[in-house]
Amino acid sequence: MSLLERLSAYWQDTLNFLLGVGLFFSPWLFGFGTEQLAVLNAYVVGGIIAVMALMALFAFQTWEDVVSGLLGAWLVISPWVLGFTGSDAAVLTHVLAGIVVIVLAIWSTNEHGAGHLTV
């Protein structure tokens, strides 16, 4: 399977990769670069999501969807746990990204859980 075919067939992982990259750059894109904990959280979680999505594109393991779902849940609650609720942009970015990650993890598990190709 070519790279373009794989990206298209496993669009949830492709979208998750783009979401992780977007989350990584979100402090600059959405102007919450002064919120240190929000920035660190976006860097770390965004990077992990992007790397795991790439791994899933080429050698899927069911645990990757479970971890993605947990990371999504963390993104949803992290503004309150880490205390960066003073920045609407940071809160909205983390909560919306978290919801999308959770939905993609569930969708990917249901659609590809047993039939996802490994190379």
Rank of each mutant, 00 (worst) to 15 (best):
L18Q: 04
L104D: 04
Y10I: 01
Y10W: 03
N16C: 06
Q12S: 13
E64S: 10
V39H: 04
T93P: 00
T109S: 09
V66N: 07
A9G: 09
L117P: 14
V91Q: 10
V51F: 13
G31Y: 04
W74V: 07
G33W: 10
V91C: 02
A105Y: 00
M52W: 11
I48F: 14
L54I: 11
L96F: 07
V81F: 07
L96R: 11
A114T: 13
Q12K: 13
E64M: 14
E35C: 07
V100R: 15
L18I: 06
F84I: 08
T93I: 04
L70R: 10
W11P: 01
A73Y: 02
F32N: 03
H116K: 14
Q12E: 11
S78C: 02
A42I: 08
V103N: 03
L54V: 12
V51G: 10
T14V: 01
M1C: 13
I49K: 07
A89M: 12
P27I: 02
S8M: 12
P27W: 07
A9I: 05
T14R: 01
F32Q: 02
P79K: 10
A89S: 15
V51N: 09
P79W: 09
T118W: 10
I48P: 03
G31F: 05
Q36M: 14
E111R: 15
Q61A: 07
G115H: 14
L117G: 13
S68C: 13
L70A: 04
Y43L: 12
A105W: 00
I106F: 01
N41E: 11
V39F: 07
T85Y: 06
T109M: 06
L23I: 13
L4R: 15
D88N: 13
L29K: 03
W80F: 11
A73I: 08
L23Q: 13
L70S: 01
L19Q: 04
V45R: 10
A90D: 10
R6G: 08
I49C: 02
G33K: 04
A50Q: 05
H94T: 07
L70Y: 03
D65Y: 00
S26H: 03
T14L: 01
E5C: 12
V39E: 12
S78H: 01
V44Y: 13
I48G: 05
F32G: 00
F60C: 06
V67E: 00
L23A: 11
I106M: 05
V76G: 02
I102M: 10
S87Y: 02
I106E: 05
W107D: 10
G22Y: 11
A38S: 06
G33H: 08
S2M: 00
L96Y: 06
Y10R: 07
S26C: 02
L54R: 01
V39N: 11
G113Q: 09
